[in-house]
Each structure stands twice: as C-alpha cells, then as structure tokens.
Design a protein around this nucleic acid. Structure first.
Length: 976
RNA sequence: GGGCCGUUAGCUCAGUUGGCCAGAGCGCCUGCCUUACAAGCAGGAUGUCGCAGGUUCAAGUCCUGCACGGCCCACCA
C-alpha cells in the first residue's frame, strides 16, 4: 500500500552504480573531486563551532613521506575529521619543514654522488666572492620545491583533510617574518646573546649543534696514561720561561689519564683534588708539557676524581688523580678553566685537524716539536702523539676502555667540543616584562623564564600571570587563560619536566647555508661616527635606530677603537655580561623596511638559525603571527585557533620541538595561554589493527609493501560490498523518493534480532567514543570492525534477507534498521575510512535520505558524510541498548555455531538442509520459538521438533549449546 | 651511572580496576565460487602468558629479584 508496487517495479537500484569490487583509486578520485569543489577541508575562523586546530608536524623536505608519516597523519586526520563532524570549527594546517642541516647534507650528498660541484666547491666560490652561497642555496631550493610538492601530493592522496589553502613552509616569506619578529623580541628582552663558548661542533658539516642534536654512542676506546714531567723548581712561569729538564736528569712526573691524548697540545693546567694527599706537596708547582714545552700549573679543583683502583666507578678506577686540563677541547675542562682563569688554547681547525691558525699562540712553536703535528686530523694526531710519548718513555700504560662519545645526529661523526662564537637563547633568564614568580619548586628555574614558562604550562603546575607590556595589544588575551599542557601517555610529562629542570642555554646559530639567516648585520663604524655609535639604552632607541621601533630594528654598536659594548651598555643590565662580546656592529632588523643606506656597508651575519627556531613558531606562524591583523583581530586564525588542541608527534621530538614550541608560544603570545598541547605518542598507539584503510585509501602514494595492510584492504572491500548490498536491498522496498519517513512496520514491535543489532550499534558508538577520547585508536578501530563485520555483516544482514525479500511491512521495518546501522557505521568509521564511507553515504542518501527508526530514533540528515553529525552516545542513543536482546541472540548464536560445527565435523555438504531437533530448557523456549526461522537460516537447517521433551531422532548427532541438547539428523549423504 | 618501556599462538600485537575454557589479524589445516563480498564464507589446530620467588580463595594482570630486547637522560677525564 505504501507505494510498494512502484518501488518494486522500477527499482532505482543504486547498487548498479557501485562496482562490485571496491576500486580504491576510482572512489578516491571521485570523492576527492567533490571535496575539493566544495572546499570541504577549509575552515574560516569566523565559522561557527568550538575552535579545534591541529598543526601538522611539518615533514622534512629531505625526502618523501614514509610509513611513519602515514600513520601519524592518519591519526591526525581521524582527530580532525571527528572534530569536524562534532560540529567544531576544525582546521588542520599542513606544511613542510626546511630541516636545515638534514636537507643541506642530503643535497650535498646527492651532488657528490652525481659528480657535480658540491658544497665544498660552492664554499670555495663563496670565498672567492663569486656567490657560491647563493648558487648552492638555489640548488637546495629546487630540491625543496620538488619534495614539498611530492609530500603535499602524498597528503592529498592519503585523504588527509588538511586545509591546503593554509599550506605553509617553515622558510617561506610569511614564516621568515615570524622568525625575524621572534628574534627581535627575544633580543630586545635580552634573551638572545652572543658568546664565545665551547659548543658541540660537527667537523664533517662544520657547524655547531645544540645539545639535543648530539647522540651518544658507545665506542671502544683507550685510556692513555701520559707522564708529564714536573718542573723541578717551584718558581713561576715568568721567572724561568726557558726552563727545561736537564738532560739525563731523573724525571719526576705526574701521570694523567686521558682518552683523547691529541688534546694535550692545548693543555693549560694539570688538576688534582685538594683532598688528595699529594696535593699539598705539589701546591704551587708546574709541569712541563711534553712536545710543546709549555709550562703549566698544577691546580686544585674538587671536580677531579681521586684514584681508586678498587672502585666500582670506572672513572675512579681508571683515574690517576691527575687531570689534564684542556679548556678549549673539553666541556669540563672549560669549566675548570673558567674557575681558575686558565688560558684557552685551541689547537684545532674547524675540520678538526691540528692547526695553528685558530688561537694557538706562536710562542708554542718556538721550542719543542708541536709543529710536526700540524695538519694531521684528530685521529692521526692521536696516533702520532701516542707514538711520541712511547718513544720518549712517557707513555706509562694503555688500557682498553669502552665509553660513550657524542656523535652528530646528522653526519654521525664524533662531536668535537669546539670554541667558537655562537648565538644563544637564555632559557633561564627572567623575562623583563613578566612578573617575578620565584622559581619553579625544586629547581633553579625562574617561573618567568622561557624554561619556567614551559614547566608551568604543564597541567597541574599552576600558572603565572603576565605583566602586560604597554602598547602590546596581545596581552588582553591573557585574562582567564589557563595553562593546560598534558601528554598522552602522561608519563612523557615527566620527560618534559626533567628536561626543562636541567635545561641549558640554547645554541641557535648554525654554520650552514640552508636556513633562516640571522637578521643581524655587522659593521664597523668609522671614528667619525663615534658620537652616534656610543651611548644609548633602550630608552634612546628611537634616536639611534633607522626608523622607529615599529620598524623593529635594533642597532648595537661599538667603536672602531675596539671598545666592546657590555651588556650593561646595551641592555642596562649586566646579567649576561660575561658572554656578551659583540664584535663589530650588530644590527637586528626584523622588518624589510631597513634602508639600503644603512646596510650598505654592513655584512649580514653568515650563520643561519637552528631549524627548530622556526619550527618552534609553527603553531603561531602558520596562523598569521606576527601580522598585526592576526594579532589584533579577535576573529583572526591566530586568536581563534592558537593555542592548538592536540599535537601528534614522536616522543624523541619532545625536547627538540615541543619544548621550544611551548616556550615560544607562551612567551610570544605574552601570557600563559597554552590550552592543551597534548602529545599523543605515535609508536605507543600503534597496532596493525589500528588503521584498516592505510593501504587502499590512504597510502597508494607511499612506497610500501602490501603485506601489513591486508586487514584494512579486506575490510574496505567488505564495507563496500555490504554497503552496496544494503543500499540495493533498501532500494527494492522503499519508493524512489520518500518525502515522508516510512512508518516502522506500522504497529509491529521490533524483533529481538532488530533490538539486538541496534543495541550492539549503540554499544559500538559508546566504545568508539570512549576509545577516541583516550586516543586509543586501536580500540576505536576494533570496535568498528567487530560491529560492522562480525555482528552486522555476518549475522544481521543474513538474518534480514527473508524479511527484505518478503516485502511489505516487515521489509520496511527491516530496511529502517539496516539503514540506521549503515548510516551510523558510516559516520563512525568515516574518520578512519574517509573515501569509501563518503561514497557509500551518497548512495545511501539516494535511496533513503531520511533515516532512523521512525518514532523512536531520528538521525540528522546530511548531504556529505564528512559533515554529518557525529554519533555521540547520549540518552537518546542509550534507548537503543538492550542487555536482554543481546543475551538472547548470543544464545541463538551459540546454538547455530554448535549446529554448524556438527555439520562440518560430519562433512555435510554446505547446501544441504539438515533436520534438527532441539531439546531446550523452559527459559529459552520462548526465544527459540520466536526466532525459529532465523536460526534455521543461520544454521542451514530445518527445525523439525523442539520442546522440553523432544525425542531424540535415531541416527542423529548430538551436541549441546546454551543449555540445549541439539540433535542433527540427515548427517549421512543420502546419495552416498 | 640514572630512568622509562617491552618480553602473551609461527609472525604482528590486544588483554581496562586480579575472577569463569587467554583473544584478534596474518599465516596454517579442512570444506565451500551458498544471487553483497574468494579482498569472501563455515569449521579447525596452535600458547609451562621471559625466568624465579611472593601476596591472594583466585595472577598474563599486584609485589620483589633476575635475564634478554629497545628507548631516553647524564659534564665520566
């Protein structure tokens, strides 16, 4: 009566439009086109909904995306798609990272492999004033363009719902502006300084590295025991500069133990622990450094470990009690040197060969034999020097020793502690405009320092109010902002905390060409400029600057007479005085409005910034910072979406990246406004059952093998086919257009099977949401899989067939249940299987635009799955659950499985119907009777008799299940 | 040296606050092209839950120690 005849006679068979085998590429293409046309991934800050933002950890442009990226990006896509469906104003910002040292190294390696001019050659050109740098950077740029395009193509191919209109690159012009602005602000606050210090030097790439870019590796080395002859007199160096041991005299000596004998050329003292019994005797005496003949003092420092051959401690065990002190080539010795005001003698060139061109005084070559080692690399020098000591009877012993040595995380060569001028960010220094809140409990980290900001960002650590700087419009955002940084799993919060408690100043300069060049110009002034060059403080800035403070130009000067500005001169404070040794003039420009006349005679600092400096700004710079429009407009992307909601990254990057991002975000935004910079750990949350679609729909663009993705591929196909079938079946029983929802079987109660599948559906919604709320993607996937494949396809769809064929009210009733299950399944699985669910969604819309269980449960219609309302487990959803129905159907399933087992065991042909007799207890009688036909269908049998006292047929096989005795007759093949 | 994580079926892994016969996928065995699906369906085999103790009525699950594997941190001459 309900237009059924029409529907049956002209079935708008949607299934015919859907090919029987899931063609991932075709579906993907069709769906992607529609999404693109409709700008489905695009969001504007003015859109309705609670803001939700994820920034992609920008992949390095060193190469194409790999499996790890696919996984991480899939996780992010699941989160952002769900948020979008939840009605949030969700955006996912894509982009790439210039990855300074890595990319430069990769390109250089490629050039070398191709036999083309490489970095070395361009360096030569540059030295000759022939634009070598420019040419090399252009080559890297070309590489970057190629891989950036490839990476973005891969993201699209995977179905990542990034807002590609907001694609960013860490070194594009907008991000470069952010870098200059950040540098300016830090500099202005006295948080950036230049210092001559021992840095982690990579002799292969010839750049400094931050502490975090150094990897320790165990290596087999040796302890060399070197004898340093004692100076026989107790006089001073000045008193007897030419003192040498008399030939043939019995040498008195001290023995030092070292793993790096080659550094002895730069020794400037021998240290002994003041508690050492020998200390008193040696007080005030000197040793004559072999080879170079330098007279160096014996000093006392309690850093020195006293010798103890029986000690468990390797250091004490191997120690002699005497420590050679080489301030230029060992971090500890540097510290000792600082304490005792020792000379610093650098005997290495930047490539770690012995050199007299980098601070080794001429005097050392006037006597002794140091010159013979010049030009040797550090390992050749080691062998040669050990040989020298052996020949001169000064080598006491050599012991094998396994110890850890720092290696460059890029070139993998051992790090050389190397003295050089570098730029630093003072991470523990109080930020001038921020209220002094004391130190973070149990640490020496001031709360109002960068490290302090990171520590107080952690959930439960309390927050610190900012003191607004006059005229800085950002600070009004501070009101009511809370600090909420948490980690998933939360144990990584500990890593984060410990790292910041022990943090040291961040070396941000790199001697590379590929990167953000320091916005700093050096220039020496002529004497005529003297008055102009001297006196200024921050309050005077407008006078000495080119332009106004709005131009963001800082000028720091010294005179040509060589007087260096102290920190006090520049900043009105002497906090970092020891390290502030500016050479020449330092101009910092953060805008492009610096005048040519000003930079005409100046040279830009050749260094580039640590790649993490620009990465640290990513959550701001991708959202428009530092544009005035972004900062002042409350509805700008920056103010709506920063701080971002969740960050998905690898754990090893917590210190390199996450830390700096938190510091910068909180510092630059001017207040503790991090909301939830959650970090979901990728590895931890990974399992094979996790990403069913990784292969087919998400990673054809990736060069990976197929084996690991069978489950996902198979599931996609099952989803496709089941969807196709359900949609086709529905089309058979409902009119082509159903402007009004069909009644649910008019007056009939839902069957127990219907109630069961709807209950399972609701439970799945609940489980999936709980899993996603905890970032348990594996559970989310498993819940969806179990429901859709196991419950829905294996059991319900089979059980629905008779009713659907039968037509009439039963068919309509069943169609509603089928449609509801498919509808919610598609919504629920869309974040993980975006393409297939979207395509099926359209087909389902074609045959049945209004869905739900009429009068009981409505579903909000949507044209596109990507924007369909996300299924939440709420009170309404809860009305679908039924423990009773689930229990009953479980029993029926047990009975069916038992019958199937009997069939298989007895080799009954699958198509043959067997006759079954069931003897059941009273409590299942009703349910079994009511579902007799379904059990028969599922088990492929005919139930000839059932009851509490059903008779056992002769010649039947017996089994038990769910408290029933089941007899299966007709086991033997009648034809046999 | 300090810390963290892992050790469950041939392989990759789930096992929530300790509770009935320890699970999934892949692989393997048997039978099926049953009109959504062979990228599938039905059935099946496979585990001293790293080792040794302990707590408990009950331990893969909690405690202690050990072994192996992996990761992080540290200024070890």
């Amino acid at each position: 009566r309900h237009a059924m005849p029409d529907a049956m006679s002209s079935p708008p068979d949607a299934s015919t439009q859907l090919p029987p085998r899931y063609d991932a590429a075709a579906v993907q293409e069709a769906v992607a086109r529609v999404w693109e046309q409709e700008r489905a991934f695009h969001a504007e800050p003015t859109d309705p909904g609670e803001p939700f933002c994820i920034v992609i950890p920008p992949p390095n442009v060193t190469g194409a995306l790999h499996l790890g990226h696919a996984l991480n990006n899939t996780i992010q896509d699941i989160l952002v798609r769900r948020a979008r469906m939840q009605g949030k104003n969700a955006v996912w910002i894509p982009g790439t990272d210039h990855a300074g040292i890595s990319t430069q190294a990769v390109v250089d390696k490629r050039l070398q492999a191709e036999g083309k001019p490489s970095l070395k050659d361009y360096k030569k050109l540059e030295a000759e004033g022939k634009n070598g740098r420019e040419q090399f950077v252009a080559l890297v740029q070309a590489w970057k363009d190629e891989y950036e395009a490839r990476i973005l193509g891969q993201l699209r191919a995977m179905g990542c719902s990034c807002d590609f209109e907001r694609t960013a690159f860490t070194m594009d012009e907008k991000r470069a502006r952010g870098v200059r602005e950040a540098f300016f602000r830090l500099f202005k606050d006295g948080l950036i300084y230049r210092g001559k210090r021992l840095v982690n030097w990579d002799p292969a790439t010839q750049t400094a590295l931050s502490d975090d870019e150094v990897e320790n590796e165990e290596v087999d080395g040796h302890f060399y025991y070197l004898r340093y002859p004692l100076d026989s007199g107790s006089g001073s160096l000045a008193a007897d500069p030419d003192h040498r041991l008399a030939a043939g005299a019995t040498p008195e000596y001290v023995t030092v133990a070292t793993t790096r004998p080659e550094t002895m050329l730069g020794d400037t003292a021998v240290a002994i622990n003041p508690k050492d019994p020998r200390a008193a005797e040696l007080r005030g005496r000197f040793v004559r450094l072999p080879i170079v003949n330098r007279l160096i003092p014996i000093i006392e420092d309690d850093y020195v470990v006293m010798a103890d051959p029986d000690s468990e401690d390797a250091k004490a065990k191997y120690a002699t009690g005497f420590l050679k002190v080489t301030p230029a080539h060992d971090p500890n010795d540097w510290e000792i040197g600082q304490r005792h005001d020792l000379p610093v003698i650098n005997v290495f060139a930047p490539d770690a060969t012995i050199s007299d061109q980098h601070g080794w005084p001429r005097e050392d070559f006037e006597q002794g034999g140091a010159a013979q080692f010049l030009g040797l690399d550090r390992y050749e020098a080691r062998r040669a020097i050990v040989a020298w000591f052996r020949e001169n009877n000064l080598l006491e012993d050599v012991k094998p020793y396994r110890h850890s040595v720092g290696h460059s995380y890029r070139s993998h060569v051992p790090i050389e502690p190397y003295l050089s001028d570098q730029w630093y960010v003072a991470v523990k220094k109080p930020i001038p405009w921020m209220a002094n809140g004391g130190v973070v409990e149990g640490t020496d980290v001031p709360k109002n320092s960068l490290a302090g900001l990171a520590l107080t960002a952690l959930r439960g650590s309390g927050s610190l109010a900012a003191v607004p700087a006059p005229g800085d419009s950002e600070h009004r955002l501070a009101a009511g902002a809370t600090s909420e940084l948490s980690f998933v799993p939360d144990r990584y919060a500990k890593t984060f905390r410990q790292w910041h408690e022990n943090i040291r100043d961040w070396c941000i300069s790199r001697q590379l060409w590929w990167g953000h060049r320091f916005p700093v110009w050096h220039k020496r002034l002529e004497l005529a400029d003297k008055e102009q060059g001297f006196e200024f403080f921050w309050s005077d800035f407008d006078e000495v600057m080119e332009g106004t403070i709005a131009d963001a130009a800082i000028v720091v000067r010294e005179t040509s007479s060589g007087r260096q500005l102290s920190a006090e001169d520049v900043f009105g404070t002497n906090d970092e005085g020891a390290h502030l040794r500016f050479k020449g003039i330092v101009d910092v420009f953060t805008s492009d409005r610096r005048s040519d006349s000003y930079t005409a005679n100046a040279s830009q600092d050749p260094d580039v910034l640590d790649t993490w400096f620009s990465s640290a700004l990513w959550p701001m710079s991708t959202l428009g910072w530092p544009d005035e429009s972004a900062i002042s407009n409350l509805k700008s992307p920056l103010n709506v979406w920063n701080p971002t909601d969740v960050l998905c990254t690898a754990r090893e990057i917590i210190t390199l990246w996450v830390s700096r991002m938190v510091m910068f975000n909180r510092y630059m935004r001017g207040h503790p406004d991090e909301r939830r910079e959650g970090t979901s750990n990728v590895e931890r949350r990974t399992s094979n059952a996790e990403m069913p679609e990784t292969e087919e729909a998400r990673s054809p663009a990736l060069d990976v093998g197929r084996s690991k993705f069978d489950l996902g591929r198979n599931f996609c196909n099952t989803l496709w086919n089941a969807g196709r079938f359900v949609i086709g079946s529905i089309a058979q029983v409902v009119p082509a257009q159903n402007p009004e929802p069909l009644p649910y079987g008019r007056g009939s109660e839902p069957t127990i099977i219907d109630r069961w599948i709807l209950s399972r559906l609701a439970r799945t919604v609940q489980a999936a949401n709980e899993a996603l709320d905890e970032y348990r993607f594996d559970r989310y996937a498993t819940a969806c899989y179990d429901f859709f494949w196991r419950d829905f396809c294996d059991w319900y769809v089979e059980a629905s067939k008779p009713a659907m064929r039968q037509g009439g009210d039963a068919a309509i009733q069943t169609a509603h249940v089928l449609a509801t299950c498919l509808d919610i399944s598609l919504r629920l699985m869309h974040p993980m299987i975006p393409f297939a669910t979207e395509r099926l969604w359209w087909a389902l819309n074609d045959v049945m635009p209004a869905r739900g269980i009429p009068g009981r449960f409505e579903l909000a219609p949507a044209e596109r799955c990507i924007r369909a309302k996300w299924p939440q487990f709420d009170e309404k959803m809860d009305t679908l659950t039924s423990q009773g129905a689930e229990r009953v159907v479980e029993r029926l399933q047990e009975i069916v499985q038992a019958i199937r087992t009997v069939r298989t065991e007895n080799k009954v042909e699958p198509r043959r119907t067997v006759h079954v007799t069931i003897r059941y207890p009273a409590n299942v009688a009703h349910h079994l009777a009511a579902n007799k036909a379904t059990v028969e269908l599922w088990a492929g049998c005919e139930i000839v008799e059932m009851g509490e006292s059903a008779a056992e047929p002769a010649g039947s096989a017996k089994t038990t299940a769910a408290g029933c005795e089941i007899f299966v007759a007709d086991i033997a093949d009648p034809a046999a």
